[in-house]
Amino acid sequence: MIEILATRCTACNTCVSACPDHVFDVGSPGELPLIARPDQCQTCFLCELYCPQDAIYVAVGDPDAIPRSALDSDPVGRIRHDYGWDGGTDDPLRYFWKLGPLLRQGVEISSARYALLLQAGKENGLREDGAPADAQAP
């Protein structure tokens, strides 16, 4: 579900170009772009990121998307701000190097958790797959 905010949109049609999946069409001269093919939206937020006016809001999870007004804080402009494309930060990618280490930390956490489980299983006479040690192989 996509919302174009009429009070902010300048009909520059940047979203029409930037959408990878042809969701929008150019509207009549001076009019808002048309959300012509909403079923093709993959909720990637890239139209929001590219909109220089913060005039688009992409809701998440049709058909039961939560209206913007019902959210705790106004999400308009948030994507562009978080990516640092609104000029709000000089170094938007300062933490990007942490992606790999954090991914690996998560892997270690889930792997260690399962190793403990196997250990406990062995102590209780269970095989590696969780079946009793004397069970027939599947």
């Binding site: 937020f45 998440v60 959210l71 948030r78 978080d82 640092g84 300062r94 990007f96 954090l102 956490i109």
Partner: peptide
């Protein structure tokens, strides 16, 4: 999850955060 993750995920992957925030 890794303890540091909640503090930095928004800067690393803004779209991932939006997937949840926009569902409340």
């Amino acid at each position: 999850a890794p303890r540091e993750l909640p503090g930095v995920i928004r800067e690393i992957q803004p779209a991932t955060v939006a997937a949840f925030e926009r569902r409340g």
